[in-house]
Design a protein around this nucleic acid. Structure first.
Lengths: 215, 215
DNA sequence: GCCGAAGCTGACCGGAAGTCCACTTTAGCT
DNA sequence: AGCTAAAGTGGACTTCCGGTCAGCTTCGGC
């Protein structure tokens, strides 16, 4: 994209048209039930073009997602606090989660596709196991913020857990009916509780039961 | 199944064969890439039979999942504590999460399919928006345990968040490499922190910042 | 305006989902 | 045992979609 040769004008136009058409279709249908032919037709280009540019549906979604996530990416890396650098990790984490919920809410079905997309792609040339760049960035960011604040926690795993929220169908459905604030609140509660918790594994100072007999 | 007429012997035999074949295929391939024809062939029945019994791939997965989750269901409703009734909610919740992680770990790819399945079904006769019975039960159980322990929390949403964990591809991958204990530990930490947290929304007694300037 | 390269296209192929109906098997009944 | 209706079965068939490709069109530097 930003490498080697410049993109030809008509190519750029088409790329745009395709992304735009995809957005429109996405507003009405779930990602899995949008056919590439539909996209092509809606964009006014041939099917071959869509495949030529994006490889497969997942590539299309990736590209769209990358575009949508760009603003957030910039806000985080170079923007002002609390999202950008400068604020304490805890603030940044809470702000980031709020922002991510916002992005997802504004792009309802898209994330759902992405979550699966990670595993669904099957082009031999790219490792299907490597996650979407956007996911990687989000996960890395959360991981680093958590571990800065609480190095005793399994930050990496917890970051996956937090992000998993956004792939959940029931939660996506909540988002669809405008309950974004509710979700953001619960995530805040959860993260705050986590960061405030004392270091021991299970209920440490309140210690009714050091740990459960289970397992 | 348990309604109206009894199931004919040959039907039962085939049902079994199909479920069994599906399990075997599931051990080797991801749910999405198993074709119904494959299943039929592996089970030694015609494709029509598979569709007749299960409607579509999702129906098949539902049935399989229901079977796998049965033991847990019984343990929870009629078994001994801490899983079954009798133990304090907190213990039951932790034990239940451990158990759920176990089920998912033992049935790796299956859950992944289920999560999506909720939305993927498209039979006009059944509401595609209603979640899988297994999901509903798990969610209801967690919700009720959380709210018994902490009525001030949004138990319903938190239960969705906890369960969302199990639909996440990255986490599924961890599970595949045997990190079930790690996941269970983190969930324990998370839930314990949540249940121990003081009631205010953001960091209450440690109160560096009553709430973030965000939003 | 010319030309090579970049981009575009849609017919085409393969394969899977789901339908359908003629056929077989079961099990209750006499 | 023999009969029969209902239940169950199977695979050819239709439809649809993802992905390919060989030839055509367009762009833009000269």
């Amino acid at each position: 994209m930003t490498e080697g040769r410049r993109e030809r004008a008509d190519a750029a136009r088409n790329r745009h048209a395709i992304l735009l058409a995809t957005e429109k279709l996405l507003a009405r249908h779930r990602p899995e039930q949008i056919s590439m032919e539909q996209v092509a037709a809606a964009a006014g280009v041939g099917k071959g073009t869509v495949f030529h540019r994006f490889g497969n549906r997942m590539g299309l979604m990736r590209a769209l997602m990358a575009e949508r996530a760009l603003a957030l990416h910039e806000a985080v890396t170079t923007g002002p606090p609390p999202l950008g650098p400068g604020a304490p990790s805890r603030e940044r984490l809470l702000a980031f989660l709020d922002a991510v919920v916002g992005v997802v809410a504004r792009n309802k079905g898209l994330l759902a596709a992405l979550g699966h997309a990670v595993t669904t792609a099957h082009k031999p040339e790219e490792d299907p196991r490597s996650a979407h760049p956007v996911y990687q960035f989000w996960h890395g960011h959360i991981t680093s913020l958590i571990s800065q604040e609480r190095s005793d926690l399994d930050a990496e795993l917890l970051a996956h857990i937090l992000l998993a929220t956004l792939h959940s169908d029931p939660i996506l459905r909540l988002l669809e009916q405008g309950d974004g604030q509710r979700l953001a609140d619960s995530l805040r509660t959860l993260v705050t509780a986590l960061l405030n918790a004392s270091a021991g594994r299970t209920e440490p100072r309140n210690g009714r039961h050091p740990n459960a007999p289970q397992r």
